[in-house]
Simulated assay, not measured.
Amino acid sequence: MKRNVLLFGLIIGVILCANMVIMVNMMYSDTDFKGNDVVGYAAMIILFSLIFFGVKNHRDKQLGGHISFGNAFKMGSLIALVGSTLYVVVWLFYYYLFVPDFIDVYTDHVLTTCSPEDLQAKTVQMANFKEMYKNPLFVILITYSEVLPIGLVVALVSALLLKRKPKGSLA
Rank of each mutant, 00 (worst) to 15 (best):
L63P: 04
A42N: 05
S68L: 01
G65F: 06
F138W: 13
P136H: 12
K74W: 06
G151T: 09
I11D: 10
A42M: 12
V99R: 08
V139A: 12
L141K: 10
K165Y: 02
Q125M: 12
F98Y: 14
T113G: 04
V89G: 08
K130D: 11
G151A: 11
F98E: 12
M27Q: 14
V88A: 11
L10Q: 08
F129Q: 01
C17T: 14
T112W: 00
F138G: 09
D60L: 03
C17N: 10
L148C: 05
K165P: 00
D118K: 09
G70S: 11
G70T: 04
A18E: 02
H58N: 09
C17R: 03
N25F: 14
V157A: 07
K122T: 02
I22V: 13
L63G: 06
A155K: 06
S68H: 05
V21P: 07
G9L: 13
K163M: 08
W91I: 09
G64R: 13
I140Q: 11
Q120S: 06
I12S: 10
F138H: 07
V110G: 02
L6N: 12
P149F: 03
M44F: 06
S84V: 08
H109V: 03
Y106W: 08
E131L: 10
Y144L: 12
K34E: 14
L7P: 08
I46K: 04
M132F: 08
D32Y: 06
I79Y: 13
T123C: 01
K165Q: 04
F93V: 14
K163C: 00
R164I: 05
D101I: 04
T143F: 09
D37E: 06
A159D: 02
F93N: 08
D104Q: 13
S84I: 11
S77V: 03
V139N: 11
S68E: 02
G64F: 09
I103Y: 09
Q62D: 14
Y28H: 13
F138Y: 14
D108I: 01
I22M: 11
L119S: 00
M27F: 03
P136T: 12
I12L: 15
L7R: 15
A121K: 05
K167W: 01
N57F: 04
K2S: 11
D108Q: 14
A80R: 03
I51R: 06
N128L: 07
G65T: 12
V89W: 10
V157E: 11
L50H: 02
I142Q: 15
F53W: 14
V39P: 03
D60M: 06
L156I: 05
L141G: 10
L10C: 14
Y41V: 01
Y41C: 02
F33R: 05
L47I: 07
I140E: 12
M26R: 15
G168F: 04
P100S: 15
K56H: 03
L160I: 09
